[in-house]
């Protein structure tokens, strides 16, 4: 299985990002993992490099409930950007609220909605999907 170049986690739960990134290393998910603790930090990093696809992530694991700029607000901003690279977004959230799941379906950029916790199997599933696509 060929690993991905760059993966990005946007989540304010530092415990979660720590454990998730460890798991990602275990399944050889990607060469690099970028971690941001809210949507604003991620945007600040991504916006200046939109023109450089080689350093943009190919997958974003996005939490919904975050301070400053939450997952939805990040998506609203990010989907306005012109990007020369296919970036797959997975929502990874603790929300079991149906309205969140329904709302996620309205974004064509969002591939799937994963409810925490994330297992190794979930990560492998994502990998397969990304490489097939």
């Amino acid at each position: 299985m060929k690993k991905l170049d760059i993966a990005c986690i946007i989540d304010d739960d530092q415990m979660f990002t720590y454990v998730l990134s460890k798991q990602m290393k275990l399944v050889d998910f990607s060469e690099t993992i970028l971690i941001f603790k809210n949507g604003m930090e991620a945007l600040k990093y991504l916006r200046p490099i939109l023109e450089s696809p080689e350093i943009l992530p190919s997958v974003i694991l996005l939490d919904l409930n975050m301070p400053v700029l939450d997952g939805w607000q990040f998506l609203d901003e990010f989907t306005q950007c012109k990007i020369n690279k296919k970036i797959t977004v997975y929502i990874v959230s603790s929300s079991i609220d149906k309205t969140d799941h329904d709302k996620a379906l309205t974004y064509k950029e969002v591939s799937s909605f994963y409810i925490k916790p994330i297992t190794k199997e979930n990560l492998i599933e994502m990998l397969n999907e990304l490489q097939a696509g």
């Binding site: 739960d13 415990m15 979660f16 454990v19 998730l20 460890k22 798991q23 275990l26 409930n65 603790s94 929300s95 079991i96 609220d97 409810i115 925490k116 916790p117 994330i118 297992t119 190794k120």
Partner: peptide, 16 residues
């Protein structure tokens, strides 16, 4: 939501 966040982390940690 809040309990799920923590229990999710606990689940992932124990697995690891």
């Amino acid at each position: 939501h809040n309990l799920r966040s923590h229990t999710g982390n606990i689940q992932m940690l124990t697995d690891m």
